[in-house]
Write a protein that binds this DNA or RNA. Structure first.
Lengths: 176, 176
DNA sequence: CACTTATATATGCGCAGTCCTATATAGGTG
DNA sequence: CACCTATATAGGACTGCGCATATATAAGTG
């Protein structure tokens, strides 16, 4: 649904090829959005088709040609409409919690292991986020907002780790 | 992917009709999973097709007939295999953060409003979760795990609210 | 020369899920 | 009697997306 809009947003800051767009998504907004490579190209094609972006083939000497994508005026309007449109909370779907909910079918040590694996994953995520985050003084609104999205991921990762500790403790107190 | 398994899990606790299953999903696991009604029926049909569940038509006097679904032995095996299988973290997708990331295209008061709307939504979610949560002493492992999934939602909701406060404060300090 | 890697774009296949609509039974309400 | 609500099941159309694969250019490596 809003990969379209995320792409419009990125292209509105910096026109680029599908290839660079995929890399930008992974690097700059990867902490709150992911996109399959083929889906990026498909979505770009759809945006051009709908007149929200335009493409210009750029010949390169030492690399294959690329399509440079730029947001059109109509694209900017669509982007701003999306930004101003009512928030619709996406359907909750937490596969890890789904497992935990039914995990009492497994022996206690398997449950502990499940929590441990989760802890390792979240720890890695947290480390990756903290490696990106930099404190900025004298920031403009855009920088503050972008940093806030990072801070969001960091805060939730820390909460998840605390909750894992708490849950593991409760389990130890319960398991025989 | 794991609606199949969530359904197997629920049916392993209590055999029921598709209709009741949909209600159970909304009420009991709604804080970490949602499912469309038609998808519930389709998934049930697929489970029966694959021999993981069986259905028995139950005639009712004062209501339409229903299909009572029970997990088969093979279904229980599939459920346990899923529980023991490696966790695969789902792709990150946070539409709200996506918006916030590009929100500096909007005037400051629209950004404030975006944060406020989010705060109201999360507050409601938190209230709903806290209304369900009950403290239980003398709980078995299953109860501890089920409560933990609730506690997870509550912890993250609180974190989100704190982060919203923090972000709003930073914005006030930045905006002219 | 064959192979691998990076750059760059794109299609085919198929699944899971959403939205909408249809169908049927039965009780309650105006 | 018409209408609404709850119970109960299900199909059609469509979308977004993931995975695999194909294609092409060019540089570097063994």
């Amino acid at each position: 649904m809003s990969l379209r809009h995320a792409i419009l947003g990125i292209l509105s800051i910096q026109p680029m090829s599908g290839y660079d767009l995929k890399k930008t998504i992974d690097q700059s907004v990867g902490h709150f959005w992911t996109a399959d490579q083929s889906q990026v190209y498909r979505t770009l094609a759809a945006l051009v088709e709908d007149g929200l972006a335009s493409r210009r083939t750029v010949a390169q000497d030492e690399r294959p040609n690329l399509h440079l994508h730029t947001v059109t005026d109509r694209g900017l309007v669509a982007l701003d409409e999306w930004l101003a449109s009512p928030l619709q909370t996406p359907p909750m779907r937490e596969p890890f919690l789904a497992r935990l909910f039914f995990a009492d079918r497994m022996p206690p040590e398997a449950i502990r292991e499940l929590l441990d694996v989760r802890r390792r994953e979240v720890s890695e995520q947290l480390a990756a986020l903290e490696a990106i985050a930099v404190s900025v003084d004298d920031a403009d609104i855009g920088q503050v907002l972008r940093l806030a999205t990072l801070a969001n991921g960091i805060a939730h990762a820390k909460t998840e780790l605390e909750w894992l500790d708490d849950t593991a403790r409760r389990l130890e107190r319960t398991a025989p």
